[in-house]
Design a protein around this nucleic acid. Structure first.
Lengths: 410, 410
DNA sequence: AGTCATTTTTAAAAAAATTAAAAAACTATT
DNA sequence: AATAGTTTTTTAATTTTTTTAAAAATGACT
């Protein structure tokens, strides 16, 4: 190989080697400020292995580009109080689009993750092209409604369920969203003239938990997201684990019952067919119609009224049928989690999704199942926690996914 | 937090900030030379984002410390041929100790992974203290026999089966090897006065495959190691995946048959009890004693003579019972692998261990099972290969584990 | 108000990296 | 065999970056 050729090729992308190094450091500063919130110059100097005057220069430039601003001064010190720097919240915004099979939410967030605009829309994820064109419609309207200067919007992050290839911007579960010559992100990006990121909803959730929730600072994290499906988000060495094509963590489609139901994925007896919210509701509806004794039997003539919330409510009211169903779901979930624990050896598992409201009923059986199906050495360093983020983990994670990529390529 | 205190604390370990940066680069050089073999100055300059004169200085220092040496000159170029630099093979050696439940091997390898001495010993891994003292005995003898100057031995790497906490140097499966006040590595290190590293045998295997075998350059790798147990080695983002405590990849102890046999781990119906070499041999012995028609029936009066090799031989000779057994084992293995594929979404799976000789019989059923139990999207980017390293993957991986840590902390 | 502690700025000094030119090593051509 | 053409390596001057150390600024406490 001709190496002088390599040397000539190096300052690619209009960037000299010198700029490259400076940027490397500025990226670190931005990423650090993003997760830490604020920071003194001395902190940053330590982080970068540089002296304070050097770091002052780097930060000054970031202030010029409006990314960073002085936030105030630290308190409590004896001498002169250091200036705290943080991300400038007034000049760069990110849109987070939360797509699910029952609705769509569009949020505009500042660099400190404050939601400056929120719109909820009755748009359901559907496997056809009109979904994306509707989404663009809602998005452009939301942008005007938000009052944010379009110039200041730096990127759009979309979280949705399915087998998502983030790198290529494809959704392999909802294949009709992908364009023949273009990806979902490519097409959307062309339409709205902004970089568009696509991330699986469960991966967004675990990223949110990892950066801003109960899993903060942990390196090996699992987050189980029980919703219409069962999703497993994985953090490995502090980063979202995508796998080769972006599909890592498909716990919902491992076979747990060879004689089970047909899953929408085409396989038989997937975990999804047993412990997802959708599966639970269907089972309850069947049982009630078949004459099961339960408080839920009042819905017998309007069976569609039974949803996951009704099931959980009944359990909270002491309905033993509802409790049994949830116990059983927890146990099966724990059995599935045990597999993931054996393979990933996580330090923390976060429980998220609609079943968090049923924590009283599922947590203990999840733990029972894990005890039964995992070697004890795996349990010693493992904690299992409920999400503390009140359903915002997915948004925070999508935001983090976008911002961290922006910083990585600043 | 008092940040001037931090600044004062920084040049810890007798190393100034300046040295820190130089070392950062020298580490990269060493790590690069280790995997690449040789390299020109221009290559290294490109790698480090530095000019050739700068890199020349760094390399000169590494030559002073005997880590690097000029290997020769590249051929084929038009002008002056660049000097190729590589790791000096004459001044630093690493001992690799390969411990298993049926024997122990001690190897001394140079920095280019050439085996300069090999000793095979009839020492079996046993859960008692005398095992370690015997090991030390063999090791010191081997060191003298090898003729290597003890000064030049930089570290010792030990691979063994079990739940291994590499960071702490413990083996949780063979708990009596751990000392009450000291770890395995701590104790051995005190005895032989060298840094000692401990790594799980399957993780060593996958690391070997990743650095020097069929998985070279791949980021997401699974290596299945079928031996007396079933081990799964995992490479995530190009690095060995350890999990929180070092136990990641315990595929052998996931339950596959709720009505199965009692496993030595205490659980019921683990994959180990079905597809490990040990389990297969036991099953064959039982079947033969029970009157199974097979070529192996000639061993009926000396049933202990049936080992895994005899089973594989019989299959190669067309014995349909042996073939059935191997087919079945392959299918069960594939079923287990399917779980790991759903969770890890690897780009390549390497098959290693004693069953590689039975590849003709197991590979197709492994693939069948994967097709049956995995979503097709997972299979598209996935290749399944046999090891090409002829049983050396474990040694190469142990070596790499040691060397990469040495370089990381140079 | 004055002292002490700490951060920030400044400017001089030191270190490191780059550039560009010269030298060296090799090929191919005449 | 000499020479022109290529490429790598070395050298030294130049530039850039970084650090050091001192001065200035800010705030707490007495």
């Amino acid at each position: 190989m001709n190496s002088s050729f390599i040397l000539e090729e190096e300052p690619v992308g209009q960037q000299s080697v010198v700029d490259y190094k400076k940027n490397q450091k500025q990226r670190k500063v931005l990423a650090h400020l993003y997760t830490q919130g604020t920071c003194t110059l001395a902190n940053l100097a330590h982080l970068l292995h540089n002296s304070v005057p050097s770091v002052t220069g780097l930060v000054d430039e970031l202030i010029q580009t409006q990314w960073v601003t002085a936030i105030g001064t630290a308190i409590g010190n004896n001498g002169r109080r250091p200036v705290l720097f943080g991300l400038n919240t007034k000049h760069h915004y990110v849109a987070v689009i939360d797509v699910s099979t029952h609705d769509t939410k569009i949020l505009f967030m500042d660099t400190q993750r404050k939601v400056v605009f929120r719109g909820d829309y009755d748009l359901r994820l559907a496997d056809n092209f009109s979904f994306l064109s509707s989404l663009i419609q809602y998005f452009t309207n939301a942008l005007t409604d938000s009052g944010i200067n379009a110039e200041k919007l730096v990127a759009v992050g979309i979280s949705m369920p399915g087998l998502i290839d983030s790198r290529r911007g494809l959704n392999l579960t909802y294949k009709n969203l992908n364009h023949t010559n273009n990806s979902i992100t490519g097409w959307l990006s062309d339409q709205i003239n902004k970089p568009v990121y696509l991330i699986n909803d469960t991966k967004a959730t675990v990223l949110g938990e990892s950066r801003f929730g109960g899993a903060q600072g942990k390196k090996q994290v699992l987050a189980i997201n029980i919703d219409w499906g069962v999703g497993l988000g994985i953090i490995v060495n502090g980063e979202v684990f995508q796998g080769a094509s972006g599909f890592a963590g498909e716990l919902g489609h491992i076979q747990v019952d060879p004689e089970g139901e047909l899953c929408r994925c085409g396989k038989i007896g997937c975990l999804d067919t047993i412990t997802s919210a959708l599966a639970l509701v269907r089972r309850v509806q069947r049982d009630i119609l078949a004459g099961q004794v339960s408080k839920l039997a009042t819905f017998k003539d309007q069976i569609d009224q039974i949803g996951i919330d009704e099931l959980i409510n009944a359990a909270h009211q002491g309905d033993s049928y509802a409790i049994d169903i949830l116990h059983e779901a927890g146990f099966q979930l724990g059995k599935g989690l045990a597999l993931a624990i054996n393979l990933f050896n996580p330090e923390i598992i976060i429980i998220d999704g609609v079943l968090t409201n049923a924590a009283d009923f599922i947590l203990s059986t999840i733990e029972q199942a894990i005890s039964k199906y995992c070697l004890s050495d795996f349990r010693n360093d493992l904690t299992i926690e409920l999400t503390q983020l009140n359903g915002t983990a997915k948004w925070l994670g999508t935001h983090a996914y976008v911002m961290e990529d922006i910083f990585a390529n600043y």
